[in-house]
């Protein structure tokens, strides 16, 4: 099973700090916006009714939880 990589998304400055809509279990962006609603609206326009909603963090650091 191949890992899902978010490298391209995190490296792309247009996504930094933004809400993004993704296809489930994928790294395919179908919507982006300053609010969750804006990202979902763009996803809907692309025909994606039920995407995953997340946010690209402003700092991509290592975590110790």
């Amino acid at each position: 099973m191949k890992t899902i990589s978010y490298v391209k998304i995190y490296k792309n400055k247009k996504y930094k700090g933004k809400f993004i809509a993704l296809l489930e279990n994928s790294n395919q962006v179908v919507g982006v916006g300053s609010t969750p609603q804006e990202a979902l609206k763009k996803a809907e326009k692309q025909g994606c009714e039920d995407p995953v909603l997340t946010k690209v963090p402003t700092k991509a650091t290592a975590y110790i939880l």
Binding site: K2, T3, I4, Y6, N25
Partner: peptide, 27 residues
């Protein structure tokens, strides 16, 4: 249920990749 790990980049202040993190993230 089977899922793959996800790959996240660790970036420095200039946005350069310093390492990659593999995390057990699912939807």
């Amino acid at each position: 249920l089977r899922f793959s790990y996800r790959e996240y980049p660790i970036l420095d202040k200039e946005g350069k990749i310093t390492s990659l993190a593999y995390r057990p993230v699912i939807d």
